[in-house]
Each structure stands twice: as C-alpha cells, then as structure tokens.
Nucleic acid binder design. Structure first.
Lengths: 219, 219
DNA sequence: TTGAGAAATGAACGTTCGATCGAATGACTT
DNA sequence: AAGTCATTCGATCGAACGTTCATTTCTCAA
C-alpha cells in the first residue's frame, strides 16, 4: 500500500475544500475559476496543474464526498442485521456528513446535473448504489402498509437532502437530535399500520383543480 | 375589475411558460436569453419588450407560480377547521401543482438563490408565508411528541420539494396516490406517540466519526 | 554548485453572454 | 391618407468566461 501523502495531495485537497465552499455559495456555473484562484491564492493558470477543467474540479469534489460517505457507511453497517437499526445508522451517517460538511453536501445535492458525459455517469452510479441500498433496507422492513417503495425512498432522501436549504448549525438542533427527530418522523410513518392513521389524513381533497398554473392557451 | 386579457398578456404568459421549461432543463444561469429567443421564436431584442432583464424574467416565473399556489391554497382551506384535514389539503395542493407544472416547480425549488436584492426578497416573503402556514398547522396539531417544529416543517417541505429530482409521471404513482402515501408517511410519523416507535430506531450510533471528509490540515 | 523536473505564473485567445439602440413593421384611429 | 402607438428586429457593444502557452521560479538530489 503506497500511502504516500505528498505535498501535491495536500494542496489538491485544500483546493477542493476551498472550491467546494465557493461552489456552495455562488453555485457551480456562477463561480468562476478566477474566484477559486483568488480564494486559494493560486494563480488562475496554476490551478490547471491540479485539474484539467472546471468540470473535472466539480467531479473531484463530488466523487470525493460520495466516496467518503459510502466508505463510512460500509464500515458502519458491517455485521448489523436488524433493518431498523441499519436504516437508523444510515440516516445518522448521512445527516452527520451533511452537517459536518455542508458545503460539499450542498454541491452534491444542488449540482447533481452540472456534470455531463462520463463524469456525470460515474457520480450517478455512486448515487444509484446508495439509493438501492436504502430501497433494499426498506424492502426488508416492509411493514405491508402499501406505501410505494420509490415514494418512501425518495421521501427519505428528500427530507435529508433538503437540509442544505434551511439548516443553520447555530440555531437548529445538533446533529444527534436532528437524526433522532427525523428517524422518528420517517420510521414512525413508514412502520405504522395504515389503519391507525386518522381518517382525515387519508381522505382526498374534493374536486379537480386547474391542472396548469397558466391560463389555457390556443396554440 | 378590468379583466382585459390582451394579446400582450397572452404572449407574456407564453414566453414565461417556455422560459420556465428551458430554465428547468438547463438551469437558470446556463440558459441564455438566446435559448429563450430560439424557443419562443421571438428575436433576442424582442424579448426585452416583455421583461427588462433576465433576472426579472426569472422573478416573473417564480412570482406567478408562487402566487397561483398560494391563491389556490387560500380557496381550498376556507372554512376548514380540522388541522389534520388542513395539512392534508395543503399537501395535496402542493403536490398537485408540482406534478402538473414540473418545470415551474423545479425552477421554484432549484433556483431559489438565483434572484438577488428586492426581487429575491419578494419571493422569499411568499415562501416565508407558506412556511409559517405549515408550521402553524403543525403547532395546532401538536401531538406532544417532542419533535422539533422546524425539523418537522422542513422535513415535510423536503419530501415534497425533492420531487423534481426523481418523479417521472410515466413510471411513478399518479398524484392522488402520491399525496396519500406521503400523507401517511409524514402524518403517521408526526402524529405517532414517541413511545410506540421501535427502540432500535431511536438509539444513537456508537462513537464519533471524523467530523470532516477531508484529512486534517495544518493551515 | 549545478541540473532537471515539479510547480507556478502573466498575458493573451476565441467565444459567449446580457443588454442596448435606432430603425422598420404592423394595426388601428381619425 | 396620415398619424399614432405598440411591437419587433438586426446589428452591435463591453465584459466576463474557460482555457492555453511560453516562461519563470522553486526544490532538492547528485
């Protein structure tokens, strides 16, 4: 194992970390390479010694973040059998990384479509793996409540991934309580027998509304 | 009431509708005015007769979508007292607009930070109003389960707003079943007494993990 | 001390962007 | 037929963008 941690590696990581912050603040397309040069105190052209294009820079950030998230999850779930416990550990892992690396996780959530071609496909593959992992756990759990698995899976990701748009570490719950509350919200709903949900929550709304927000057109 | 629906109004709405689709596909900053000119078959300069800047175009889309969403909700909740029913109606309204106007709603969810200054503040005001409305209903409901209100509120929005990243009308549930499943997930979890949630779902994960995905640095 | 490769740079390129402006066109009134 | 106002357009602007390249500076083993 050649675990040589060179000066090159350290500087690259430092650039990735800084770039992630800038991408999180301004958005990938808004942020210019010049912004990153200014923040890292490396010259514009000097940055291209560490990556070959702006798009590859975004990929490196996303791939690194996803890879770390994934590896930690592997380690965490080793030997765990109870699916409830598995899901709880997965959620806590996910939320902990979110809160501790808000910039990177915002880039993951918000710039999912900013990559193209092969780089995009490679990140998508990591994402798919995680999605199927969650869906698999929910399938194991299956309380027979009739809730669609895809809806449940992406509702869970939605709850967690939406964090970047509202969570403020100084005014909101610490990550442990956050994970507890979200676990209770999601698992409480997913594991509950449908017949114990108040009827008013299940009744559909009356009538149809205008399907489009725009007035009807002729063309 | 001067409800004169002029040709100008119709053309503006047609431009907004087309622009929303392009913003949804390529993202606001990626999409050029020239893209919109091509799609609407109006010349580049001709567009500026209908809006004064690209940013105002984005504002018009967001404001129109939010306004419609809001007005329909007002009408829908009139006379409804039961908070469970209120929440259910709100969710169905929200999801229905999402599914029926996916382009506009993606722009709402994904381009929240693309406006600046006063235009951004005006959209934020509408958003705040809706957020407080939801939080108010949850407060009415309050089952005394100890779940943080902010966490519950934004978890609900996260579930719903994340739709744009996964929902495909041709392979996923129709909106009625979607609303039912999400209602059961959220309300089932929110209304459940904490003591009935399986213990394994509440236990914290053991140990602390590396708080940052990056290796420690010296500077 | 020197030489070679790694690391970093300033200046510039071609392209695309949002926006402007004066002129042309169309529709409708008088 | 003339006049008015709304609508549309081609041509063009300066600014900012990602990227390149010929050079220079740094580092350290020989």
């Amino acid at each position: 194992m050649t675990e040589a941690r060179t000066a090159y590696d350290e500087k690259l990581e430092s650039i990735l970390r800084t770039a992630a912050q800038i991408f999180a603040e301004k958005g990938y397309h808004q942020a210019s390479i010049r912004d990153i040069a200014r923040a890292t105190r490396v010259s514009l052209s000097g940055l291209y010694y560490y990556f070959s294009s702006k798009e590859e820079l975004l990929f490196l950030i996303q791939d690194h973040a996803f890879g770390t998230l994934d590896e930690t999850l592997d380690r965490l779930l080793q030997g765990v059998e109870d699916p409830i416990r598995k899901l709880r550990l997965l959620m806590e892992n996910h939320l902990r990384y979110f809160v501790n690396n808000m910039a990177e996780m915002k880039v993951l959530s918000h710039e999912a479509e900013s990559l193209t071609g092969e780089l995009r496909e490679r990140v998508n593959a990591r994402k798919r793996r995680l999605t199927e992992r969650v869906m698999g756990i929910l399938e194991e759990l299956d309380p027979g409540n009739g809730i669609d698995l895809r809806v449940a899976t992406f509702s869970l990701f939605g709850m967690m991934n939406w964090l970047y748009s509202w969570y403020r570490p100084d005014r909101d719950l610490p990550v442990e309580r956050l994970a507890e509350d979200m676990s209770r919200l999601f698992l409480g709903g997913f594991l509950r027998d449908g017949s114990t949900v108040p009827a008013a929550a299940l009744e559909a709304a009356p009538g149809e509304q205008n399907p489009s927000i725009w007035r009807s057109q002729t063309d």
